[in-house]
Computed example of a mutant assay.
Amino acid sequence: MIVYASMTGTTELMAQTIADELIKAGDQVIIKDALAVYAEELQSYERILVGSYTWGDGGLSDEILAFYDELTEVDLTGKVAAAFGSGDSTYEQFARAVDLLEEALQNQGCTILTKGLKVDSGLEDEVEIELKCRGFVNRLIGMLSA
């Protein structure tokens, strides 16, 4: 399952690119906007990817706050997960939402497959972002087959 929050479309592009690459690799993927999912739904999936843009200097986006709060109440022991998102490198805490999501997933019992993917929405174009997402999926697949 892929859950994401996006305001400008960058994190949505990331989520869709990741989903497309996983589907090409033979996975079945459910992708949902964070506003349309409850964290307890994650218990039905073996693999979890969560993405959000970072608001301001290191905060979670409003669109993912309710999901994040619910996430801290859900037991995800035995699941594998990773986080992704966009940010602005002019801020001291670049794309910190990725770190917060990764930490929350780990705290709820997930094994983190690979370091979270961060892209700079102000500096990277769509092609660069898609390339980074493909590399992220390759790392995920590599960790799953190890």
Results as ranks from 00 to 15, higher is better:
E21L: 03
D27I: 08
Q28W: 12
D33I: 03
V80R: 15
Y38L: 13
D69R: 14
L42V: 06
T8M: 01
G116M: 05
G26H: 10
K118W: 02
S121C: 11
V50W: 01
T17W: 04
F94I: 09
K24C: 01
N138E: 15
T8Q: 00
I2N: 05
E92S: 14
Y38P: 10
W55T: 07
I129M: 03
N107W: 10
L140T: 04
V37N: 06
E70G: 08
G9H: 00
K132L: 06
E70Q: 15
R139L: 15
A39W: 10
T77M: 13
L76R: 07
V119W: 03
Q108V: 10
D88Y: 09
Y4E: 03
S86V: 07
T72M: 13
E126L: 06
V50D: 10
S121F: 09
G122W: 11
Q28F: 11
G85T: 07
T111H: 14
E92V: 14
G56V: 02
A83S: 14
D88N: 15
V37Q: 02
L140Q: 04
R47Y: 15
F94V: 00
D62P: 04
S89N: 02
G85R: 04
I141Q: 11
T17K: 03
T54K: 01
A97M: 06
V98Q: 02
E73Q: 15
A36V: 12
G116F: 10
Y45C: 01
L113S: 01
I30V: 15
Q16V: 11
D33Y: 10
T8H: 01
Y53P: 03
G135T: 06
E102R: 06
C110D: 08
T90P: 02
L76E: 00
G26P: 10
E103G: 00
V37C: 08
I129V: 13
L113G: 04
R134C: 12
Q16L: 09
E40D: 15
E92I: 14
I18D: 04
K79E: 05
S121I: 06
E41K: 11
L49F: 09
